[in-house]
Design a protein around this nucleic acid. Sequence first.
RNA 1: GCCCCCAUCGACUAGCGGUCCAGGUCACGGCCCUUUCAAGGCCGUAGCGCGGGUUCGAAUCCCGCUGGGGGCACCA
Length: 421
Amino acid sequence: MPPVVRFAPSPTGRLHIGNVHTALFNWLFARHEGGEFRLRIENTDTSREVAEATGQIQESLRWLGLDWDGEVTFQLDRMERCREEAERLLAEGKAYEDEGAIRMRMPDEGVTVWDDLIRGHIEYPNEKLEDLVLVRADGRPTYNFASPIEDWLDGITDVLRGEDHIPNTPKQIRILEALGAPLPRYGHLANIFGADGKKLAKRHGSVSVEDFRAEGYLPEALFNFLALLGWSYDDKTTVMSRDELVERFTLDRVGSSPAIFDYAKLDWLNGVYARALDSDDYASALLTWLREQGNEWDAELVRASVPLVQEKIAKFAEYPAFAGFLFGEVEPDRGLIDGSSPVLEEAERALAELEPFEAEPIEDALRGLADRLELKPRDAFQPIRVAVTGSRVSPGLFESIELLGREQTLDRLRAARAAAA
RNA sequence: GCCCCCAUCGACUAGCGGUCCAGGUCACGGCCCUUUCAAGGCCGUAGCGCGGGUUCGAAUCCCGCUGGGGGCACCA
């Protein structure tokens, strides 16, 4: 029987990367096994609910390509059913009233055990299980009551969630047993931490899916990277497409120890995906990203710049600093230009009448200039680069000059000379 | 405090008793290429937390310790 899994975030904010990791593993498992992946919003705690969160969560999942089966369900919609079940437990003597709330009677001897999908045998002493509240005095069911009931109602066969839920599992097992409901299998994924081994937070870098999107990461790269956190295919395969991941993902290769989120490796992987893109696709993705950032740069020029940047930057967020000189004024650091050097003036002269104004002839002209001045290429080109692009780090100089155009180039050479004088 | 989970290079991991004086990837260092920056090529540094067992043999199994994390709500 194909498994039915679910991802059940609470709508309290943007989708945290740790939660998406859990969502991803559920999704991968479901798709690999030909099962279903459901999305449920656990909104029992209305006081903490953030209005836009439900939409944001769905948008983030869609962006990453994690599609869900069926309609999105909301925990709150099943309040009534939960209350009925609680009444039943009350009637059967398995629960009792306490200051308006309904509490579950928990055993205080023995142990509750289950075979964790990824950790194996786990034991929990029953004496540590307290009589938890099922339904609050105001009538709202608590998470630990509503969640297992919904898993039951939805026919969830496998509950794959974060390891912080391990202490909840014995409680939920007892509830399901009291209810006479079948038990799903449980699997607890290890947490993901920041470089200091603490919970991944803003100070470490991006944390929500939206943050990563805003940084200009490609969803395929983030997807691949996340899959490798706590799971591996073999001893050497790193880059895998979505389809390969679906085909290869199995729970027996999921690890149980926590992982640290390595932004440097993500950057590398993103670069791998970025470079592998067809330049048209790269351009479209870049343009989309720029627009999302509220940047309305000339689309044709952006497209034309792709060959100069695609191999050089790891993620789109680097684009404005790297290629921004094509789209606006530039303020070169005077300290980087030697006012007494004839290079800028010579370059101006060499480029003034050059035909055609294209990378190759530009290169020939500037190399000739370096020869004449008896300068090493790097020493001759650096001041020109700074004058034209405003920085000592830029795309290829000759291609940059071609794209910038003669007029702009000459203007910038003149301006730099004046500033350095 | 109590309970639970985890433990291989700086990071992600392979390893499921001998084929491991531990392999791959990122990062890092060196060299090559080179107009800067990347990319690419080659080489390299670096790890089984500690102590007991079990076994002919342990990174692999067991126990303890230490360390890290999580949980102990009418939050989810």
